[in-house]
Design a protein around this nucleic acid. Structure first.
Length: 271
DNA sequence: AAATTCTCCTGAAGGC
DNA sequence: TGCCTTCAGGAGAATT
């Protein structure tokens, strides 16, 4: 599942080929994604214009043009790759953005992803306007988490996965960061001390940063390849390891459902 | 305002 | 081998 590190790795992989390139055409073989692909608007406005840069906000990729921005979200099964423009779409290839002889291709079996168009200031787009801080940005801190937690009784795991507070912390890295910080995922958010939130903020930064580094080193060539970044799975300490011994104390890692999401933790190391 | 539930979709895994 | 059922999961929308 693409989490923030995979999205950032994708951004870095495609940017050298897309930034500065003119969008020459659009092929949509399946417009029914998370939201319908706005084919008309893209044809009328985005096609023919240069993508000036490729940015990321939360897990959205932003292909910025002069008059607006193409938003791409990978959902949970999406990936982008650069293929020859004359290569026909295969199974689950839904959208091609054509740049010269190459196509930036979205493949997404489960179709939770999205390709959208935002006129003018993309920051004002409804999907972006009310997002929380970037976890790798300078505004993110333990103090920010502590402030956001005031009065909240919901589990701390749900706080750090709340995109109105901090973006890009998905299910996998939420479990990992809480393990590193020694905090039980079910602990009420309002009952975690500032000191422990400082540790948690550091853990979130570290685990995301390490995953981006790992993605960068294991990244296959985006051009002509399948475009899937490395998934960092070997470095996961609790996620997906139910029943296996905790790497710290040896006790069996537990799996419980929290907010309809699988949650992995060590009940001995995390309190 | 905060918390919970629902929804989209399909591949994988398990049962028989 | 194959058919059927169940489940995961990002995250916005709807509901309580």
């Amino acid at each position: 599942m693409p989490e923030l590190p995979e999205v950032e790795t994708t951004r870095r992989g495609i940017a050298p080929y897309v930034a500065g390139a003119r969008l020459d055409g659009l092929r949509v073989s399946q417009p029914r994604l998370r939201w319908p692909v706005p084919v008309e608007a893209l044809q009328a406005t985005a096609v023919g214009a240069v993508v000036e840069r490729v940015d990321r906000r939360a897990k959205y990729l932003l292909l910025r043009q002069g008059g607006g921005t193409i938003l791409v979200h990978l959902g949970m099964s999406g990936s982008l790759s650069l293929v020859p423009a004359d290569l026909g779409p295969g199974t689950h290839d839904h959208v091609d953005l054509i740049f010269g002889g190459r196509a930036l291709r979205l493949n997404d079996p489960r179709r939770f992803g999205a390709v959208l168009w935002a006129d003018g200031d993309v920051g004002a787009h409804p999907l972006l306007a009310r997002l929380g801080v970037e976890p790798l940005g300078s505004d993110f801190s333990g103090a920010l988490l502590r402030a956001a937690a005031t009065g909240r009784r919901a589990p701390v795991k749900q706080l750090i996965m709340n995109a109105h507070v901090v973006v890009g912390v998905g299910n996998i890295y939420a479990s990992e960061a809480l393990f590193r910080a020694g905090i039980h995922p079910r602990r009420p958010a309002g009952r975690v001390s500032l000191a422990r939130y400082e540790r948690l903020a550091t853990a979130i930064r570290d685990v995301l940063g390490e995953a981006i580094t790992a993605g960068g080193t294991t990244l296959r060539d985006f051009v002509g390849g399948d475009g899937r970044p490395g998934y960092f799975t070997r470095a996961l300490q609790v996620y997906g390891r139910a029943g296996e011994p905790c790497v710290t104390c040896g006790e069996a890692v537990r799996r419980e459902t929290l907010g309809q999401r699988s949650t992995f933790f060590c009940s001995s190391c995390q309190r």
